[in-house]
Structure formats: structure tokens, C-alpha cells
Design a protein around this nucleic acid. Structure first.
Length: 723
DNA sequence: TCAGGAATGCTTTTT
DNA sequence: GCATTCCTGA
């Protein structure tokens, strides 16, 4: 009955990895070496060999990766469900199960960066220090580093002494933890730290979890930090069935505490470990691998590893130097259009950059060229004001100690409860040692608050309490109710939409959130707490859609784990890549080099690298210097001035659009027929001049009464038809 | 209490 | 350059 399922073609070393059953296994997997296939096949192989699916735990770094693995395993039809999730989701699950031992309440809130910053500010103030000298972002970074190294506030204090800064930091750290505790909240790093401590300090819990998960798999092991390392260790200490996969050359999260040493020292940790190297590259054409190879050997601290091409020659490499970032973007836009024109698939095409802010010029050029695109960006959606407002209501409903949530919504929408009132209640709460929420409940005891304000407070409290009846029901229903009865809906509706056309309207965003909740109710269920904890860990890269039919724009960090036929990497300049902040630090330059390596090795057949002679950063334009990485990789930039000249023109764009996209959405092109009179919230009346049917991303060109002609994304333009 | 303007600082970023 | 925060005055 063995091996029967393994239909996928696997190389000899892949086979060995897949059929390795018991004991520690390290798979060093170069880019494009079929790592994901090995992992999913091994998972299936374990089940095939009689391992209970629920006894397998696979850990990834992103939700996206987890989801994809779930789908792949599901597609193999081996039955049963293994636990596949990110480190953080797994930790949430464990912490809720063993909340008592972890000394937390299971309905804890998970604080994001904004919440964390607010808490740090408070913590700094409580230590009688000034946020001017102790900027929250800095402090947070320091605390995060400590937590990732499993030093809690007490440990740090005990280890302490040190300089003035360390002493202050220690004080702030303790205050910060106290505040989180009072709010019944954990930050991202706490999820890891507390789980690691649980596994370290409670042998019975460790045994229980080892018993439950007999086989552990950890992907992207080169990017684990110390806390994650200890968790992985704790989860496999009793049985030793730990399989880790990764590639030291793709370690790009060192600055976030990831320790490349974890993967390098695996054989020391597990002396009986089997080590399998996957060096064959099934993804990229040899020309591309050659560039990657030349680049990465410049890294001194590295084990030698080859990229062995499997594909035959035929890759294309273009390196161009433009005058400024607009030209650079225009070049990319023109090149992209030419590619799509010649039949390349937009979904198989991506533009990478070092920092998110660089997407802007590209986006403009793509709109100009009528190229549909998706930006895979950090926390866009869930950071929108209206979304955070609704979520804050839900947070306070589930966890009334969550002060950050309460402060956010107590006067949103405006209900006449201002800072003065909040200050008075806050003082009262502190003096009584109760939560802000409790203090509001007891506001009658406060003489300083006028009767009218007290009435407002009570009304607010009753609204929140009223919601609690529906906590057990579907999240979408509760959310809808919150939206309608909290006054948020009214306030959003009356808000005159001065939003510019490139953004979706707040109402649409809320609708999307509610539908996401509905989806959650249907697919997973579990109620409010599950949903909220799910949402808190859900983020940006999960928005990437590999079948979107659009060109993808993302940072190189986001690109890890993906692959595309055509890859553009922009901004190959000193100070951008390598980034300014890594300059002069050898280890960080090496990480930047790995980052570029990751970018290059995403490409299957075509790689286009650009730089520009001038770049504007913080509104200041300056001359640039070509990136050292170009020379290391043996690349010679070619100057280029007129972007359009780069492509041998084939037909005009109208032909191209009709051919490629017209069938996608038959409706809107008729609704917005040429010449039709329409109205735009911001620009007023206008007539449809052109309509480019790109399905979901259709672009409409309107001649407005003011005389200006504007191309707008149809889905964001919010046009009404006048005739 | 809040709007509006000045001042500041910010850009690496999986969860 | 832009978003966020701070500050002032009504």
C-alpha cells in the first residue's frame, strides 16, 4: 500500500525527503527546487503510511503559504485534516487551550502595531519619561527583540543594570507588560514568547502536545527567530519527529530577529538528523540562475551551494538605466504592455521593489498604460479607519478590558464624550484599580461629570451591552448590527465623499468586511473570539491572488515563495538595494544581497532589472549610484532614455484590449457607452470618452464639464448615470 | 471641544 | 512628499 499515491514526478533526493518518516530531517532546498511539492507530498506520504492526519502539524510563515499547502494536500485526496497554520495561529490555539497555565484569559485581544505604540506611549509616561527621548517605535523594536529572544520583563530586569537607556527600557518594558495585562491583550511577540514558556515550564503540557502532534514540519526554517526555534523544539522534544525545510541563502528577516544560525545548527541540535539537499532548479532558465549564482557567491558567510538548472537555455535578461523614477516606471509600463501584447499572462508577471513607497510611480505608469495590476501591500485593508472602528466595537464586546478599543470608539462617531470626560473617568479607574469600562459603569460616583455627559456615557454603555446578546450568533449578523446601531453607518453616509477616485469607498470596505465575516461563519464558524483572533493574524500578503489576471506589485520580502514567468526588479541603486540602513554593516549587506537573490530567483524566463540616475526620496531629488549588486552579478546596465523606443510596437492598444479582455465583463461596457452623461462625486458631470474593458479593472475615460479628461478605475470611480 | 494649521519625522517588514 | 501629531485659538 506504500508509495501508491505518489503520482508526482520526484527526483531521487526529493523521494528520500518525502519518504523519510521518523526522526529529525533537514531539507536544504534551494529556490525552485520543488520544496513545496516535497512538503505536501511528505505530508500525504505520512498519512499514507498510517499516521493520523490530525497528528501532523505543519507550520508556515504566512497565512498564504498555509492556505496553499492546505489546498494542495486537499487536492491529493489523502483524507483527514492535518493542522497547517502559521506559527502565530498555532500559538493562539495553544494559548487558548492552556490559558490558565499561561496565566491569561482565553478571550484576549491581539494588539497590532498601532495598539502597541499607544501602549508604549502610556508605558513611557508611566515611567516618568518623555516620548521625545524614547520614541515608541524604537522602544517597541527593542522590546520585540527581547521577546523574540525569550527575555520577559522580569528576566530583563534581573539581567539588567547596564546603561541608563537599558534601565529606562527595563522600566518601560515592565509598564508595557502591565498595561497589556490590564487590557487582557497580547502582542504578536507575546504569542510566541508565552507559548515557548508554556512548553518550557509545563512538562505535562509539552507531553500532551507532543502526544497530539506526532510529526512536526516547519517551513522557511531559516527565518525562525529564537522563540520560534524553541517552540519547534518544544513541540518535538519527546518524539524527535521534526522536519524542517529552508534555504540559508533566502534568509531575509534577520532584522526582525530571525536567526540564520537555527538552520545552520540543526545538525548539532539533532545529532541523528538526516540532511537532504535539493539543488536542482526546476523553475528558472539557466541565464537567470547564472545571475543569481554570481551574485550570491559574493556572500562570505555562506555554505557553498550550487543552483543546478534543469530547464534549457532561453532566458532573457534586460538591465536598463533610466533618468528618473518616472522614466523608470514608464519603461516598465511600456515593456509590460509589450509583453502582455505578445501574449504573456499578466498573472505570471510581477514588479518587485525594495520599499512599498516605490510602488507609486509604477502604479501611475500602469494606469497610464491601461495595465491591470494588484498591489500586494502591508495591512492596507485592515488598517482603514472604518474597518478598525468596527473591529474596535467587536473587540470591546468580546473583551471589555481592551482599553485601546474602548478609547477608539467611545467618541466615534461623535457622541459628546470628549477628552476631558475620558480623563476624569480614567483617573477614577486608576484610583479604584478597575478598567475604564467598569469606571464608565460607575460614573454616577463621579461628581465632576455633568449629568448630561453621564447620560451619554450610559447610553453608550447600554449600546455595547446590548450587542453582547448576539455574541454567540454569526459574526456577520453581529457586525451588521454594530454597524447600523452604533451610528457608524450614519456617520459614514453623511461624510461627504471627498475620497479620491483611487480608493474604495468606506461603505464598500465595510460591506467587504461583513462579507468576509459571513464567509468565516460559513467556513469555520466558532464565533466572535475566533473571528477576531483570526482577523488579527490575517494580513496583507494574503491578498495576493495568483489567478488574478493582473500584474502583481510587491516588495521583495513579499515575493518570497512565489514565482513568475516575468519579473521586474526596480531601483537597483546604492541606498535602495542595498538599503541605506544596511550600509557599512557587512552582515546586513549580505542580507540585502540575499533579498536581491530571492527577487532574481522568482523569475522563470524573463528578468528585467532597472535603475534610475535620479531619485526623489522625502521630496528631495538626488543623483544615484548604481547598486554594487549589479556589478557583483556581472550585469551591465544599458542607458535608455525614451521608454517607448524599447518596444517594437505591435499594433495600438485598442486592438490589444479588445483582443485580451473584452469578454471578461460584458455588462459595464454597455452601461457606460461612449458619449453617455455621468456624474462623479468629486469631478462633477462628464461624458464617457473611452471605455477600456478590463473586466474587474475596467478603466473609463471621462471628459468632465471642467474640461479636464480623466482616466478612472471604474470600480472606484463611483459614477452615477445621468442619462 | 474641535477645527485648522504648523511641526515633525518617516520608510525596510512575514505575524 | 506626505501622514501624523502637536498646538493654538475660537
Amino acid at each position: 500500500m506504500m508509495k501508491r499515491f505518489a503520482a508526482e514526478n520526484l527526483t531521487e533526493s526529493q523521494q528520500r525527503a518525502v519518504w523519510h518518516k521518523d526522526g529529525p530531517l533537514l531539507v536544504i532546498a534551494g529556490p525552485g527546487s520543488g520544496k513545496t511539492r516535497v512538503i505536501t507530498n511528505r505530508l500525504a506520504a505520512l498519512i499514507n503510511q498510517g499516521v493520523t492526519p490530525s497528528g501532523i502539524c505543519a507550520i508556515t510563515f504566512t497565512n498564504k503559504a498555509a492556505e496553499e499547502m492546505r489546498n494542495r494536500v486537499f487536492a491529493m485526496n489523502v483524507g483527514g485534516t492535518a493542522h497547517i497554520s502559521t506559527f502565530h495561529s498555532l500559538c493562539v490555539k495553544i494559548l487558548r487551550q492552556f490559558a490558565q497555565a499561561a496565566d491569561i484569559s482565553p478571550d484576549f485581544s491581539i494588539y497590532n502595531e498601532t495598539d502597541q505604540k499607544n501602549c508604549v506611549k502610556e508605558a513611557v509616561k508611566a515611567a516618568d519619561l518623555d516620548t521625545k527621548n524614547f520614541p515608541p517605535a524604537r522602544i517597541l523594536e527593542a522590546i520585540s527583540r527581547l521577546k523574540n529572544n525569550l527575555q520577559d520583563a522580569a528576566d530583563f530586569q534581573a539581567a539588567g543594570i547596564g546603561d541608563y537607556f537599558s534601565q529606562c527600557l527595563s522600566k518601560i518594558y515592565r509598564n508595557y507588560q502591565k498595561i497589556l495585562k490590564q487590557n487582557n491583550a497580547l502582542d504578536f511577540d507575546d504569542l510566541l514568547l508565552k507559548t515557548a514558556f508554556l512548553l518550557r515550564d509545563f512538562q505535562d503540557i509539552r507531553r500532551q502536545l507532543n502526544e497530539k502532534f506526532r510529526y512536526l514540519m516547519v517551513d522557511e526554517y531559516q527565518d525562525t527567530n529564537h522563540a520560534q526555534y524553541q517552540i519547534a523544539r518544544g513541540l518535538s522534544l519527546e518524539h524527535g519527529n521534526i522536519c524542517v525545510t529552508g534555504d540559508p541563502d533566502q534568509s531575509i528577516y534577520g532584522w526582525r530577529g530571525a536567526d540564520i544560525g537555527n538552520i545552520l545548527a540543526f545538525e548539532k541540535d539533532w545529532p541523528n538528523a538526516t540532511v537532504i539537499k535539493l539543488e536542482e532548479n526546476f523553475r528558472s532558465m539557466p541565464e537567470i540562475l547564472d545571475v543569481a549564482d554570481k551574485l550570491i557567491i559574493a556572500n562570505k558567510s555562506r555554505k557553498l551551494k550550487k543552483l543546478l538548472p534543469v530547464k534549457s537555455a532561453g532566458g532573457e535578461i534586460v538591465v536598463r538605466c533610466l533618468d528618473d523614477e518616472q522614466d523608470e516606471a514608464a519603461f516598465v509600463g511600456a515593456f509590460l504592455r509589450q509583453l502582455l501584447d505578445s501574449g504573456e499572462n499578466a498573472s505570471q508577471t510581477a514588479v518587485f521593489y525594495r520599499v512599498n513607497s516605490m510602488s507609486r510611480a509604477i502604479e501611475e505608469a500602469l494606469i497610464e498604460n491601461r495595465i491591470p495590476y494588484q498591489v500586494v501591500r502591508g495591512v492596507e485593508f485592515y488598517n482603514r479607519r472604518e474597518i478598525r472602528d468596527i473591529l474596535a466595537y467587536l473587540r470591546i464586546i468580546m473583551n471589555s478590558a481592551d482599553e485601546q478599543a474602548l478609547l477608539r470608539i467611545i467618541n466615534t462617531p461623535a457622541r459628546g464624550i470628549g477628552d476631558t470626560t475620558i480623563g476624569r473617568i480614567s483617573t477614577y479607574a486608576a484610583s479604584k484599580g478597575i478598567s475604564l469600562y467598569e469606571a464608565i459603569r460607575k460614573c454616577d460616583a463621579l461628581d465632576s461629570i455633568p449629568a448630561g455627559t453621564k447620560a451619554k456615557l450610559k447610553k453608550f454603555l447600554n449600546t455595547i451591552e446590548g450587542f453582547k446578546k448576539d455574541v454567540a450568533g454569526p459574526v456577520a449578523v453581529l457586525m451588521d448590527k454594530v454597524f447600523k446601531t452604533s451610528g457608524l453607518y450614519e456617520s459614514l453616509k453623511t461624510e461627504i465623499a471627498e475620497e479620491d477616485y483611487s480608493k474604495a469607498s468606506p461603505l464598500d470596505n465595510v460591506a467587504e468586511l461583513i462579507s468576509a465575516a459571513g464567509k468565516f461563519d460559513q467556513q469555520q464558524g466558532g464565533g466572535l473570539v475566533d473571528f477576531m483572533q483570526h482577523i488579527a493574524l490575517f494580513s496583507d500578503t494574503d491578498t495576493y491572488d495568483s489567478q488574478s489576471g493582473k500584474v502583481s506589485l510587491m516588495t521583495m520580502h513579499c515575493a518570497k515563495g512565489l514565482e513568475f514567468d516575468n519579473v521586474f526588479i526596480i531601483g537597483l541603486e546604492q541606498g535602495i538595494l542595498p538599503h541605506e540602513r544596511s550600509m557599512g554593516i557587512a552582515s546586513e549587506i549580505e542580507e540585502e544581497r540575499r533579498l536581491f537573490f530571492v527577487g532574481i530567483t522568482r523569475a522563470k524566463k524573463r528578468l528585467c532589472i532597472t535603475l534610475s540616475r535620479h531619485r526623489t526620496i522625502y521630496g528631495r531629488t538626488s543623483m544615484t549610484i548604481a547598486s554594487q549588486f549589479l556589478f557583483e552579478a556581472g550585469l551591465q546596465p544599458q542607458s535608455s532614455t525614451v521608454p517607448q523606443k524599447e518596444s517594437e510596437d505591435k499594433g495600438d492598444d485598442s486592438v490589444y484590449y479588445e483582443r485580451d479582455y473584452s469578454q471578461v465583463s460584458p455588462d459595464s461596457s454597455q452601461t457606460f457607452a461612449i458619449g453617455r452623461l455621468v456624474s462623479h462625486k468629486k469631478f462633477g458631470l462628464g461624458r464617457v470618452k473611452e471605455f477600456h474593458n478590463l473586466g474587474d479593472n475596467s478603466i473609463i475615460v471621462i471628459q468632465f464639464k471642467s474640461g479636464q479628461v480623466k482616466p478612472l478605475m471604474l470600480k472606484y470611480a463611483d459614477l452615477s448615470i445621468i442619462e
